[in-house]
Structures are given as structure tokens and as C-alpha cells.
């Protein structure tokens, strides 16, 4: 299946793009999608402990399974206000 990945702020800078499409095995979790990205962009790895995630523009968790066509977003620590 394919998932659409969204990256923001510094994560976007590291990957060089804010939107990617990646293959993931059926039943893959958000965490597995992240691990695939880290393999591709090792500079993302320091964010492992500080990021959060969303599926289809709703807050999610790394243990949640993604579905074909989902939009999976990775969020570095936020700094609004």
C-alpha cells in the first residue's frame, strides 16, 4: 500500500520536501513508516523521542496501523503562540 507522508518545519528541511509518497507493507504502523524515513534520511533520527504524529489530520499514536492512501504527518516539537 501507499501512504502520503507530510513533514513540517525542521523535518521538512532535513528531507528537502514536505510531501512524500512511500510504500508500506499492509498492517504497518505509523512507527514503521517513521523508521523507513529515518533509514532514508538519517538526520531525522534525533527527533525519534520528541516528535508526535497524525493520521488524516487527526492526532494519532505511533502504534496505530496505517491504511492505504492515509496521510501520515510527523510533527516536530511545536512552537506556536
Amino acid at each position: 500500500m501507499r501512504v502520503n507522508v507530510r513533514l513540517f518545519a525542521r523535518l521538512r528541511d532535513i528531507a528537502g520536501t514536505g510531501e512524500l509518497t512511500r510504500e508500506a507493507p499492509s498492517g504497518a504502523t505509523v512507527g514503521a513508516v517513521w523508521a523507513g524515513l529515518v533509514a532514508e534520511y538519517p538526520d531525522l533520527s534525533p527527533y525519534e523521542k520528541s516528535i508526535s504524529c497524525a493520521i488524516n489530520a487527526d492526532y494519532s499514536r505511533f502504534t496505530v496501523a496505517v491504511a492505504d492512501g492515509d496521510e501520515v504527518a510527523f510533527l516536530p516539537p511545536v512552537s506556536g503562540g
Binding site: 513540517f8 518545519a9 525542521r10 497524525a54 504527518a73 510533527l75 516536530p76 511545536v78 512552537s79 506556536g80 503562540g81
Partner: peptide
Amino acid sequence: AIERIKQIVPIWKH
């Protein structure tokens, strides 16, 4: 509201 914005809302300052 402003404290929670800084905690949970996906906005980033460059």
C-alpha cells in the same frame, strides 16, 4: 488557551 496552544497545536516558528 495560550498555554495549550504552545503545548499541542502544530504550528512552528522559524
